[in-house]
Amino acid sequence: MTPRMPSRASAPPADWRDSLPPAEGRYSYAFLDEGAKREIRRRMLKAVAIPGCQVPFGSREMPIARGWGTGGLQLTLALIGPEDVLKVIDQGADDSVNAVNIKKFVTRVTGVAVTTDTAAATLIQTRHRIPEEPLRPNQLLIFQVPIPEPLRLVEPSERETRRMHAEADYSRMWLYLYEDIVKFNEITVGARYPVLVNRRHLMDPSPIPRWDLPKLDRGEALFLFCAGREKRIYAVPPYTEVQPLAFEDFAFRVEAFAGRRCARCGSVGTYLDEVIDDATGRRTYSCSDTAFCEKALRGNSVKEARPSGEDRA
C-alpha cells in the first residue's frame, strides 16, 4: 500500500479575499435575478388561471431560512417595483420580529416605501392573518405558506395527493371531518381550515384563523400563496368562491370571542389575542391586527379601552 499525501487542486490565492467577486453590484434589484423572477411570474399566472391549484416552481434559496416566509418573499420580490408601498405582517402585527426582518431585507434590496397602514399598501406580505380592514381591488395580499397541501392531514405522500387533486377525490378529507364530529361532536380543525375554491380545488388557506376565511370568499383583492420549502404557488383571484368544508347539519364556525372587545381600542368584531398578565394572572384581549387597532384608537379616541375586554382567568 502506497501512502500519498493529499494535495489541493491549485494553490490558494495569497489573499483569500481576491477570489471573492467584487461587492459592488453583487445583488440585483429585488435580489432575485431576472430569470428567477420570470419563472415565478409565469407560475403565478398559471396559479391565477386555475384558482386553488398548487403550481410547482423552482423555489430559490433566500437569505432567510426555509419556513420563515421564503415563499411569500419570493413572490413579493418577483412582483415589487419602485412605486410599490409594502406592508409586512406576522400574526397580524407589523412590528413582530419576523415581519420587521423581512421588511428590512426587502427595503434593503429595493428601497421601496413601507407602511403599516393597510389602506396605503399596494403589496401586503402576511403570515397567519388577513387584515381586518377590507382590501381594495388593486391590492395584492401575499401569504407565507408552511404546508401548501390541505390533504397532508390525511395523506403524507405527494404522489398520492397529486392524484387526489387530479380526480377531485376529497373523500378522505370529508371522512376526517366526519370522524371528528363523531368523536368530539365538533370539527376540531383550528387554523388552516380546508376550503374548496371555485367548487373544484381543495386548498390550504395557510394557517390563518377560521375568522379570516370569509374574507377570502369573493374578496376584491388578488390573494397569492407561496410555500418556498415545498415549492408551490397558488392563488385565489378576486370574486372567486371560497367555501370552507362543512356539513349541512354541522355548519362551519369562526372563533368565538363571546362579544369581548379589544382592551386597547375597544373594537368589537376583530380577531383577538389573549394575553395573560404575569402579575395578576388576569386575561385580557387585544386586536391581533395591530395596525387596525392603532387606527381605531386614533380615529376613535372617545371610545376608551373598556374593562369589558377583560376576563378573570
Binding site: Y29, E34, R38, R41, L45, V109, L222
Partner: peptide, 21 residues
Amino acid sequence: REAHSMNHDGRRSQKNYRNLL
C-alpha cells in the same frame, strides 16, 4: 450592497407583469 435602481427593461417588465396579472 443595495441595488435600488432597476434597469429600464427590468422596470418595464415589472410594470407590464403587474398588468398581465
